[in-house]
Structure formats: structure tokens, C-alpha cells
């Protein structure tokens, strides 16, 4: 039980720390004219939403884990 609590506490701290680090990075903002490369599809996380969905449908039913890497969520399927 104590180990479980410690694990959850560590995960919570890691999430908060990561969020803070990411948000603080905006203290030196990237200006609009510097974002040409960021708009390229190779740097976008949602460049191919349909391909990502299909990939998720292939992988997700075969694994216990879900979330994060694609838009597929649990439910909506009779198998899992």
C-alpha cells in the first residue's frame, strides 16, 4: 500500500515538474516569424490524424495500455 502511494506521489510530482518546465520555456517565446519550420508536417503532432487512428486500431486491442500516442480511446468496440 505504502509503495503504491509512493509510486503515485512520484508520478504526480513528475507530471507537475514536466508541465512547469514546459510552460517556463515560454518565458523566452518563439516569435511568429521563427515558426516556419514548426508548421511543417514533420514537426506537427497531428499531421496525419486518420493514419494515426488506423494505427491505433491495429495496436490498441492487442495491448493492455491506452492513451497518449493516438486519438483512439477505450470503449466503442466489443473486443476490449
Amino acid at each position: 500500500m505504502r509503495r503504491d502511494c509512493l509510486e503515485k506521489f512520484s508520478i504526480g510530482i513528475a507530471i507537475i515538474a514536466t508541465a512547469i518546465v514546459l510552460v517556463l520555456a515560454a518565458c523566452t517565446p518563439v516569435r511568429f516569424h521563427q515558426k516556419a519550420l514548426l508548421s511543417d508536417r514533420m514537426l506537427r503532432f497531428d499531421a496525419d490524424p486518420l493514419g494515426s487512428t488506423l494505427q491505433g486500431h491495429m495496436i490498441t486491442p492487442r495491448e493492455g495500455a491506452i492513451g497518449g500516442f493516438n486519438s483512439v480511446s477505450a470503449g466503442g468496440c466489443s473486443c476490449k
Partner: peptide
């Protein structure tokens, strides 16, 4: 079977060549 999913995402531009994403999901 009832399923509810909540997902919180944070996407951050770090440099003109770097972008990061943090996603927390609860189902």
C-alpha cells in the same frame, strides 16, 4: 459497458526547431 475518458494535453514550442507535448489520460 460504460467508458469515460478525460485527457489533458499541453503542447509547448521550446525553440524554432523543437516542440514538446505532455498528455495525461484517465479512463
Amino acid at each position: 459497458r460504460q467508458t469515460i475518458t478525460a485527457e489533458l494535453g499541453l503542447t509547448q514550442v521550446l525553440t524554432p526547431k523543437t516542440v514538446a507535448n505532455l498528455t495525461v489520460n484517465h479512463t
